[in-house]
């Protein structure tokens, strides 16, 4: 569903992503991990079609900038980007209309109920707490019923209940055949449901690990071995990506 081939992203002389290749199939969860500045958000923004890049990215077989690809993709940005003068319900209505998705009130209401926003559906986004804004940002991506979805640090700012609901949702979306790419720092929260983990460092994949393989090290141990406390790889090891 998500296919990223030899993507390089430069900001002037700085190479933020270097020759990144990976794919996320339908019903799979791929995790992007790495220290700050590793290039996770950059590759995510490239996939979402927000940045220019060298290489090729397709979504459902369509180039990621095409209208067909955009229809398939949901994107949860790192920081909620909401409209202060719209209510919670109006955000979902706006995106439903913009993406030309048929009305499905039970589905929308269920999403709102699930993330405890139903009672707040007539509240302006400006009046929501930070955590609630993050929940609404997630619902904005879900309301268009995407076939692939990218979460950039989705757990930041959420309360324990919302974290539990979101992790349950990841599993449900997997069962529904949605391809998911999740960037996170919270290693412990992804231990249970990942299919593949890509550890990034300095704009490259330092390692790729599949869940169906046996490993001696935990994800956390591997992460610190590869990135080190100062963000520099301690070993020269670079697993095949």
């Amino acid at each position: 569903m998500l296919d990223i081939r030899h993507v390089t992203k430069r900001y002037g002389k700085l190479v933020a992503n270097h020759d990144i290749s990976f794919s996320v199939d339908e019903g799979k969860i791929a995790i992007l991990m790495g220290p700050n500045g590793a290039g996770k958000s950059t590759i995510i923004k490239c996939i979402a079609g927000l940045l220019r890049f060298e290489g090729e990215i397709t979504i459902g077989g369509f180039p990621n900038k095409s209208i067909e690809a955009k229809k398939l993709l949901g994107y949860v940005p790192e920081m909620p980007a909401l409209y202060e003068a719209l209510t919670v319900a109006e955000h979902l209505e706006f995106l439903r209309r913009a993406y030309k998705v048929p009305e499905d009130k039970p589905y929308t209401d269920a999403l709102l109920e699930r993330f405890e926003l139903y009672e707040k559906r007539d509240t302006l986004a400006k009046e929501l707490s930070k955590g609630m804004q993050q929940k609404l940002s997630i619902l904005c991506a879900l309301t268009i019923r995407p076939r692939a979805i990218i979460f950039d640090e989705p757990l930041v700012g959420l309360d324990p209940y919302a974290i539990r609901e979101l992790t349950k949702l990841f599993r449900e979306l997997r069962e529904a055949g949605v391809a998911q790419l999740i960037s996170t720092h919270m290693i412990s929260t992804v231990e249970d449901y990942w299919d593949v983990v890509h550890i990034m460092n300095k704009g490259e994949f330092a390692a790729t690990r599949y869940n169906n393989e046996c490993h001696e090290q935990s994800l956390e141990e591997l992460f610190f071995q590869l990135t080190g406390e100062d963000g520099k790889p301690i070993t020269g090891e670079k697993e095949e990506s």
Binding site: L50, K71, A81, A98, Y99
Partner: peptide, 12 residues
């Protein structure tokens, strides 16, 4: 412009 939606909306 600083928000992602206007770029993501599947329209020309």
């Amino acid at each position: 412009l600083p928000r992602p939606y206007i770029y993501l909306i599947p329209e020309p």
